[in-house]
């Protein structure tokens, strides 16, 4: 573990060179411990694949005190509950209609569309990071057989709820936006709703399962085509 300066009022903690479920669990434990022991002086925490950005309040503390407290919080993760987060199931209407890139992924992998859908559902994913846009959760890791590089030309408009793959990551687009990921289906669950509490159904560290639903179920759950 390595603590580096990020800015005048922030540190970045590097937990490992690469990401893994174990690293993610360790970061979650660190987040919990930092909130419990340093809460008042912390402004924001940004957990990601293998790092944690810690932003502190320069009017309440300083670089030296925070580094010391951070070291203590990070050295004492054993007793902290690092259980693998909540298990959240997200429904997906997988089809060529809802996922225009399914055919290409299947063709490239030498699989049928049904097999691609099956493989995407089999995996339990972990929320490694949230960013890019409000509610955009990076989930990993996608089975290598259906991993797909980003599109050479990103789409101008990816619909809200689009379930997508980029390399070994998958995600659900929380809002209409441009995007270069491969689209394989649509999820009727809102990934970010500012008017609802909580505004997101998932948090970093949670485990995600996708479950295929029919077109009718998708529409009944508020999905739009």
């Amino acid at each position: 573990m390595k603590i580096e300066i990020a800015g005048q009022n922030s540190f970045i903690v590097y937990f490992a060179e690469q990401t893994s479920a174990a690293v993610s669990a360790q970061i979650q434990a660190a987040v919990a411990n930092i909130i419990a022991t340093m809460g008042d002086s912390i402004i924001d925490l940004v957990p990601s694949y293998a790092s944690l950005l810690v932003i502190f309040d320069l009017d309440r503390s300083d670089h030296f005190a925070i580094r010391k407290q951070l070291r203590a919080a990070l050295n004492n993760l054993d007793g902290v509950d690092s259980s693998a987060g909540e298990l959240v199931t997200l429904p997906v209407y997988y089809s060529v209609e809802a996922g225009p890139d399914l055919e290409i992924i299947a063709e490239r992998a030498g699989l049928s569309i049904e097999q691609v859908i099956e493989i995407h559902q089999q995996q339990e994913y972990r929320v490694y990071a949230i960013g890019f846009a409000p509610g955009f959760a990076y989930l990993g890791e996608v089975d290598e057989r259906i991993a797909a590089p980003r599109l050479a030309t990103p789409r101008q408009k990816v619909p809200r709820g689009a379930v997508a793959i980029a390399d070994r990551q998958t995600a659900v687009y929380p809002a209409v936006s441009p995007g270069g990921w491969n689209l394989i289906g649509l999820c009727p669950t809102r990934m970010f709703d500012p008017d609802r509490t909580p505004s997101m159904p998932v948090a970093v560290g949670d485990r995600i399962r996708f479950e295929a639903i029919s077109r009718d179920e998708f529409l009944a759950q508020g999905g739009e085509l």
Binding site: G7, P47, S48, A50, S51, G131
Partner: peptide, 10 residues
Amino acid sequence: MLSEGICHGA
């Protein structure tokens, strides 16, 4: 490099 948190002014 893996994506990571970005602070103000980075």
